[in-house]
Computed example of a mutant assay.
Amino acid sequence: MIDWQVNPDYATGEAGRAFASLDAVFALQGERVTVDPESEVIRLRLDGILYYVKRYTIGRRKLARRWFGLRDLFGPQRAVKEWRNLQRFHAWGLPTPTLVAWGQERRAGRFVRAALVTEELRDTVDLAQLAKTADARLRDRSWIAAVSVQVAACARVMHAHGFAHNDLKWRNLLVTGGESPQVYLIDCPNGAFWMQPFLEYRIVKDLACLDKVAKYQLSRTQRLRFYLDYAGRTRLTAVDKRKIRKILAFFVGRE
């Protein structure tokens, strides 16, 4: 059985034909961006617009790592979680890429393949790339403040819904150029809802992932400002101080 959906805004023209079905999407040729044993990402331009196509297959991982085949039958697929999480972010008012087409194929209840297509976010770069290239914007206090408050708001909204990103790293945060940057969340196949006390651990992990790079790129004052924006406070409480100690210690000995 194939369940395939196309965003009505993209159902016509060259894009409509290219993304009309799962078979059509798997037949597409484009520039390969990334590849791993279970998925690949290609990009291609249609009608002057750049699209990213992520295609998932069963892959070649060891059987034991796939729950001896049971994951294909019962386990949630990364592709499904990725497009559902993009839809959740959109519903929560969090900036994300536009979901163009998505769906999967299952046979006898087992996963076979899946794909999702998103439209390019123009004039954007991920924060990890800015850190890698020592971009001058990371030394602009007003620019950093504008980005930091948006990232803090995104994390706060997710966590308030009982949801943890689980890979909230600088590479998964895109930012536009210019003096008024806009932050976008991308790539969230591992995000999920959690109940306490597990949620608190995942929240600490999310914030620690952000701070893993921030501690080398930002001042202590900027990092504190981020946490205060995230917590919605003007000064730290005793609870905040305990959480910050957990955040700082999270990756100690694991870097």
Score class of each variant (00 low, 15 high):
46 L>S: 03
60 R>Y: 07
104 Q>N: 05
86 L>F: 09
198 F>Y: 15
72 D>C: 01
227 Y>Q: 03
69 G>L: 09
140 D>E: 04
3 D>W: 07
60 R>A: 07
212 K>G: 01
217 Q>N: 12
5 Q>K: 15
91 A>T: 09
245 R>L: 00
217 Q>M: 13
10 Y>R: 02
65 R>F: 04
4 W>V: 08
37 P>Y: 08
139 R>K: 08
56 Y>F: 15
137 R>Q: 03
52 Y>Q: 02
68 F>Q: 00
231 A>S: 13
211 D>I: 05
220 R>D: 15
85 N>S: 09
141 R>P: 00
174 L>E: 01
248 L>R: 14
199 L>G: 08
101 A>P: 02
130 L>E: 02
158 M>F: 12
52 Y>A: 06
93 G>V: 11
215 K>H: 14
194 W>T: 03
246 K>L: 08
227 Y>S: 09
227 Y>W: 15
213 V>M: 10
211 D>F: 10
15 A>K: 09
44 L>V: 08
151 V>R: 02
110 R>F: 09
141 R>H: 04
147 V>P: 00
135 D>T: 08
246 K>P: 01
189 P>M: 03
37 P>D: 00
71 R>S: 12
29 Q>H: 10
238 A>F: 10
130 L>K: 07
108 A>Y: 12
48 G>E: 12
42 I>W: 02
91 A>G: 05
11 A>S: 13
19 F>V: 04
